[in-house]
C-alpha cells in the first residue's frame, strides 16, 4: 500500500518463525535491501506465529482462525498492511481474511475469543508476500532500473513452491501451474530464467517433516534433474522452507547416489542482494550447503573468483 504521507511503501513487518529462528540472514537481507527499494518495514509488537496453515490448522481449525485473526488485528490496530517473508504465513493470514469475509457468522465467535485478549478484527487486512509487493507495487521495469548490478545472465530455474499461488482466489498472485510473475522479477535482476516441466511440483519438505525421507528425496531429485536438463545453472526459491529442503535434499540425494545434479539454491532475497551490489560473501554463500557453479556465478557477476 503506497503510504502517501510517508511517500513510501510502508508495511507492518511479519518475518514469521522459521526465518528469524533458523535463517536470520534472510531477515537481515530484507531489512537491509527493502529500504533501498523504497519499502519501509515497521516492527510491530504483538505478532505471534501466523499460525502454520498446515499443521496448526490441521490441529484445530477454529484456534488457527482466532490466532491468525489476532495477528491481523495487531496490524489493523497500527493501521498498516502486512508484508510477509514466508509464503505459508501469507497463506495463513490471507486465508483468515477470506474465511471471515466469506463466512460472516464466524466473525462474532472469533471476536468473542479475541475480546479476552484485548483485540477485535473489523474487516480485512491487506497481506502481501514481498514478491507480490515487488511485482505489483514496484513492478519489473522499475526494479530493473533500481538495481546496481545485473546478474550477467546466470541461468536459473524458479521453484515457486506450494503456497505462493495456491489457492489462487486467496493468494491472488500467479497461475499455480505455470507461474511467470516471479520469473519476470528475476529477469529484471538480469538472470536468464529457464522454464521447466516440473514447475508446479512440491519440493517435498512436508514429506521430510513427516519422516518419509525416500519420497522426499525423490521429489527433490525429480525437480533439480528437470531444471538441469533444461540448462539451469542454479535455482531460485521464494520460500525458506523450500530453500532448506532443496539444499539439504540435494546434498543427501548425492550422498545416496540418487543424482549427480547439484544446483546452488539461492533465495530471492540473495539474488536481489547480489543485484543490489552485494558480494557472494556478503550473502553468506560460503555457508550454503551446495556451492557448485560458484565459478560460473562469479564470472557472471564479473567479480572473478
Amino acid at each position: 500500500m503506497r503510504d502517501e504521507k510517508h511517500n513510501s511503501l510502508r508495511f507492518a513487518f511479519f518475518p514469521g518463525c522459521l526465518v528469524p529462528a533458523r535463517f536470520p540472514q534472510f531477515e537481515y537481507l530484507a531489512r537491509q535491501l527493502f529500504p533501498e527499494l523504497g519499502i519501509e518495514l515497521v516492527d510491530v509488537e504483538g505478532f505471534s506465529c501466523c499460525p502454520d496453515p498446515v499443521r496448526v490448522m490441521g490441529a484445530d481449525q477454529f484456534s488457527w482462525l482466532v490466532l491468525a485473526a489476532r495477528n491481523l488485528a495487531v496490524a489493523q490496530r497500527e493501521q498498516l498492511p502486512i508484508l510477509t517473508l514466508c509464503p505459508a504465513c501469507t497463506l495463513s493470514l490471507a486465508s483468515a481474511n477470506a474465511a471471515l469475509r466469506e463466512n460472516p457468522d464466524l466473525v462474532s465467535p472469533v471476536n468473542a475469543v479475541l475480546a479476552d485478549v484485548g483485540y477485535e478484527i473489523e474487516g480485512p487486512v491487506t497481506v502481501k508476500h514481498f514478491l507480490k509487493v515487488f511485482y505489483e507495487d514496484i513492478g519489473t521495469d522499475a526494479l530493473e532500473k533500481m538495481i546496481k548490478r545485473p546478474l550477467g545472465g546466470f541461468s536459473v530455474s524458479y521453484h515457486s513452491g506450494c503456497h505462493e499461488n495456491n489457492p489462487p482466489e486467496i493468494m491472488q498472485y500467479d497461475n499455480p501451474f505455470n507461474p511467470r510473475k516471479t520469473e519476470g522479477l528475476l529477469a529484471s535482476l538480469g538472470l536468464d530464467v529457464i522454464d521447466y516441466v516440473e514447475k508446479s511440483k512440491c519440493c517435498g519438505s512436508p514429506l521430510t517433516l513427516d519422516g518419509k525421507l525416500d519420497e522426499s528425496l525423490a521429489a527433490v531429485v525429480r525437480k533439480v534433474e528437470d531444471m538441469a536438463r533444461f540448462g539451469a545453472e542454479g535455482l531460485v526459491v521464494g520460500c525458506t522452507s523450500c530453500f532448506q529442503q532443496l539444499e539439504i535434499g540435494q546434498m543427501m540425494a548425492r550422498r545416496r547416489e540418487l543424482t549427480e545434479i547439484q544446483l546452488p539454491v539461492l533465495h530471492f532475497l540473495e539474488v536481489l542482494a547480489l543485484a543490489m551490489g552485494r558480494s557472494l560473501d556478503d550473502i553468506g554463500f560460503k555457508q550454503h550447503k551446495i556451492r557448485a557453479n560458484r565459478d560460473i556465478l562469479n564470472a557472471r557477476l564479473g567479480e572473478g573468483s
Binding site: N166, P176, P206
Partner: peptide
C-alpha cells in the same frame, strides 16, 4: 499429515 496443503488437487 504428509500432504503439503498445496491445494492443487482442489484446483
Amino acid at each position: 499429515w504428509a500432504c503439503s496443503g498445496c491445494h492443487k488437487c482442489y484446483e
